[in-house]
Design a binder for these strands. Structure first.
Lengths: 224, 224
DNA sequence: CAGGGTTCTCAGCGACCTCTCAGGCCCGCT
DNA sequence: AGCGGGCCTGAGAGGTCGCTGAGAACCCTG
């Protein structure tokens, strides 16, 4: 198992290297964000340990950059104890786990192994609802094997509905998130729901995109 | 991060406190269910570790009570190994995760952190009354496995009754909370109670939605 | 500037929902 | 048993909500 450790404090980096090697990992070190980003891109690691506070490029941005490039290597973030950085942000940016310094060495190893175990089934890429699939990164939609063409607005609407599938989503919520306004005539939502239905609904089958009169719409996977 | 540990075995409680403090948590202890409930209500914790077997009030009931009060603090339940309690029940009552004793300390911490991460976007659990279930977010109602279709007004009425289930609720309270008026003819409530009964009551069985003549209505779970 | 695609507005229609009303039922009281 | 008030319910008027076709405005692209 190959681990990349991106950490600028020499002492900490060396300690991690030694410790992890003792556990049987192959360990590479990077001492700033730029080097870390470069190695992560080309090194084919199984997991990356990434400090947040780094010279040149912060750990945040390394993580963000990698995810933007669709690199889904598991990342465990490290932060200093002072609450300057909000770890939740790190997770939002695509980190898989985090530890706050000072951390227990045993815990670190346990977390790394947990990440490696889960590793394979990351790649959140596509959203699913029944046999409907939407890939936000590639901007693609399909029902089963059948690809579906959507206009940008239709796509944005479907993406929002799929992110909240099985929930009832009100028109005003839709207006706010898809149209980015809140005082528009809700009729435009009805119109686009109509467009979507013509494209994603299977004839002679229960609609995947249901109207909940007086409340909004609900996109269901076939199971629910 | 503030953690409340509700655990009656002194030794275990002390061990958890020490361990979690070492991880950087602020830890409070409660030694029975009553104290735990009190602290959980007023302490503004980020997560609660809750043993099931407790003096005075069981962990089950602490959890149930908190959820009934719309307190959605993440709860991790602990149970003894013997299968007397079914953990699935705990999750139904609104716990977010559980561990069976004896558990690994590392695992406990990992689970706690996972809860903290998810914490914010938890969704309020479904309301239950007997085998009747209502999910406010999904806007769904079911009796057992059978889904039930309700109009918006019917849904609002049932939601209000379920939030106050087992209590007697007067028509004027209903008018105020469901119709948002107070000087309307109370007959409209009677009419809608009638609509609801036709949809949610099981034929040949005691009504779940009882009339309390002169006082109002009471929705009972069959069990109590 | 023409053409095609996309977004949005508008108005009509149908279905559904809400609420009122009036007659009858039921319960508790005398 | 008889009475009165509270409660239930069927019927129906009126209103609201959501869907849709038509077409105008907009925006690229060639």
């Amino acid at each position: 198992m190959r681990v990349l450790v991106v950490e600028d404090e020499r002492r900490m980096a060396a300690a991690l290297q030694r410790g992890l090697q003792a556990e049987g990992f192959a360990v590479d070190l990077a001492h700033d964000g730029e080097e870390g980003l470069h190695l992560a891109r080309h090194g084919d690691y199984d997991v990356v340990v990434l400090d947040i506070m780094l010279p040149r490029i912060s750990g945040y941005n390394v993580c963000k950059q990698l995810r933007a490039e669709e690199n889904w290597v598991p990342i465990l973030m490290l932060s200093a104890k002072d609450g300057e950085y909000d770890m939740a942000d790190g997770l939002d940016l695509g980190a898989d786990d985090y530890l706050t310094k000072p951390f227990s060495y045993v815990v670190l190893v346990a977390r790394l192994r947990a990440l490696l175990r889960r590793g394979a089934n990351r790649r959140p890429a596509v959203l699913q609802a029944g046999d409907l699939a939407l890939d936000p990164a590639r901007r693609r939609v399909s029902r089963g094997q059948q690809p579906i063409e959507l206009t940008p607005r239709e796509f944005a609407l479907l993406e929002y509905l799929m992110r909240r599938h099985d929930e009832v989503v009100s028109k005003s919520e839709i207006l706010e998130h898809v149209w980015d306004t809140f005082d528009t005539d809700p009729n435009v939502v009805e119109v686009y729901v109509g467009y979507l239905r013509r494209k994603i609904d299977v004839p002679f089958s229960r609609n995947a995109l249901q109207t909940v009169r007086g409340a909004g719409y609900r996109l269901t996977g076939d199971g629910g």
